[in-house]
Nucleic acid binder design. Structure first.
Length: 494
RNA sequence: GGCGUCUUGGCCGAGUGGCUAGGCAGAGCUCUGCAAAAGCUUGUACAGCGGUUCGAAUCCGCUAGACGCCUCCA
């Protein structure tokens, strides 16, 4: 059961900038924290890519037999649009525009997020904490940082003193920056800030009178800084030093850098052993982002209602498309690429389904054990899903040869082949076996088409090809394609 | 301006100092009454220029282009 004892997993650690053997702090157990969404609008497909990548990581770790505690937060306060005095909480802004409570905004988009993740068949995390649910922990953290001497109070707000921290720690080690460069390269700054240095960041902000998301604290009625919640919640549930911290590449700086600073300031140890960063999903060659509007929403994808889409795509197909690229590579979204993936996806699923129809014999023409290990090798190499998928296509070719009677397999190998395909397709990647017809047909329609297929078969039996071709061609015209196979005729909707 | 990443065959996308990634499309074949569908077979590409090397697409340098972070963003 403890596959991890036999499979050597390596992961690319953003901190060391190289692949490292994965060794959890406690044998057999993994603590993983991933930065979740800020819930002030619908998650877009780019956001989803990150969460689906970490779903793959979560699933694979579990598959290897690790006991995984996966914590993914929901940011529902404190994430300001700008760091300056003009910064506004986007949740508050949305609440003001829609004239609803901030917590209604939070609820609305949290529910949306969960529905989307569910549609993608992503597993829920073990713990999904919210920032507003951990105000006390965050206040305690600030008190600790102040006590350690790395924060200062001004006008009811508390800021992290990056310059002070950098004197005895390395601020910028994750993102490869050094503070001196940052200070000398600081672009001419707008409005004078109350911060001592532009690099300092807020731990607690005093709320203006009209600011309705506010909590009492020793310093003022206010709200916590964005970076703080992740430190508070990750250390609360995973400890001061835990295995994996993940998030999008765009969070590396400043967010994750600040998390490291906060944690080191109060716990005197590096919080995270392996930092994993997923790359961006682009649209038209540019990063998908909420703020620029350059994005596509999952529901647009599922319904096909977006100008760049030629048709609807199933969530699992979109997931498969994403997994055909490595999580650390930029992936460009396009209709053509998605269509190409969809065809491959159905071919893979058809092959998987046909395994159960294969009759075993007394020898095998394919080394299933080696092939199975090559699937693990792919995933062991920093979760290389595109290589894994390539391996599954190798098996697909073999399965099709078996189906045609051009190859042989023993009963035990057949069982292992099926199990391996099942494990990687459904358990590790979390794909869903939808068939081309079942996804969008209605019973009445299929009964009617079955009738026409029957009539056509009768005509063909009578060599009345004029009639049989008429049925076939006219169905084709209305978007119903007949497919003649060895086991009879099926159809699909275009 | 600073820091960093990327540039692969018609398209998407892995990988890497010498050995076929894979998918889609295209071509050929099988099947079929004919088609379609499906299956099989088939691809020697790595931005440009120079260097290191027995050998580089893979390492180094320069040039061009693209992207990301430096302000909210997964």
């Amino acid at each position: 059961m403890h596959l991890y004892k036999h499979q050597e997993l390596t992961v690319y650690n953003s901190l060391s900038k190289q692949k490292e053997k994965f060794e959890p702090i406690i044998e057999g157990a993994v603590g993983m924290y991933v930065c979740g969404p800020t819930v002030y609008s619908n998650v877009h497909l780019g956001n989803c890519r990150t969460f689906l990548s970490f779903d793959l990581v979560f699933r694979y770790l579990k598959h290897l037999g690790y006991k995984v505690r996966y914590v993914r937060n929901i940011t529902d306060v404190g994430h300001l649009e700008n760091d300056g005095e003009s910064g506004e909480d986007p949740i508050l802004k949305k609440a003001r525009i829609d004239q609803i409570e901030p917590m209604e905004v939070v609820q609305l988009y949290s529910v949306d997020f969960h529905q989307v993740m569910n549609a993608f068949n992503a597993l829920p995390p073990s713990i999904e904490p919210t920032a507003t649910g951990h105000i006390i922990e965050q206040i305690q953290l600030i008190e600790k940082i102040i006590k350690e001497g790395y924060a200062y109070l001004i006008n009811g707000s508390v800021y992290f003193d990056v310059v002070k921290f950098n004197e005895d720690h390395a601020y910028g080690k994750l993102s490869g920056r050094n503070l001196e460069d940052m200070i000398s390269n600081t672009r001419e700054l707008a409005a004078q800030s109350e911060k001592k240095n532009p690099q300092d960041f807020a731990l607690w902000k005093k709320a203006e009178p009209q600011h309705i998301m506010r909590w009492p604290s020793p310093w003022s009625d206010g709200f916590p800084g964005w970076h703080l919640e992740c430190t508070a919640m990750s250390t609360k549930y995973l400890g001061n030093n835990f295995d994996i911290h993940g998030g999008g590449m765009d969070l590396k700086f400043p967010h994750h850098e600040c998390e490291i600073a906060q944690a080191e300031a109060c716990n005197h140890e590096s919080p995270v052993n392996y930092w994993l960063h997923t790359n961006m999903l682009t649209l038209n060659g540019k990063k998908m982002a909420k703020s620029t509007g350059n994005n596509i929403l999952p529901n647009e994808l599922f319904s096909g209602k977006n100008d760049i889409l030629s048709k609807p795509f199933a969530p699992t197909v979109a997931k498969f498309f994403m997994f055909q690229a490595h999580y650390r590579s930029i992936l460009d979204f396009s209709n053509d690429a998605l269509e190409a993936s969809e065809k491959g996806f159905f071919r893979l699923m058809d092959a998987y389904r046909s395994i159960s129809e294969i009759t075993p014999s007394n020898k095998s023409d394919f080394n299933i054990t080696d092939w199975r290990q090559s699937c693990y090798d792919a995933m062991n190499d920093d979760f290389n899903s595109p290589i894994l998928i390539a391996q599954l296509f190798e098996a697909t070719k073999f399965i099709n040869s078996l189906k045609e009677g051009k190859a042989e397999i023993t009963a035990s190998d057949l069982e292992l082949l099926q199990k391996t395909m099942h494990d990687f397709l459904f358990e590790v990647m979390g794909l869903v076996d939808i068939s081309e017809t079942s996804s969008n047909d209605g019973n009445k329609l299929s009964e009617a088409v079955e009738l026409l297929i029957e009539l056509r078969n009768q005509a063909r039996a009578n060599k009345d090809f004029a009639t049989s071709d008429q049925i076939r061609d006219q169905l084709q015209e209305v978007g119903i394609q007949l497919k003649d196979g060895k086991e009879g005729t099926t159809f699909s909707l275009n």
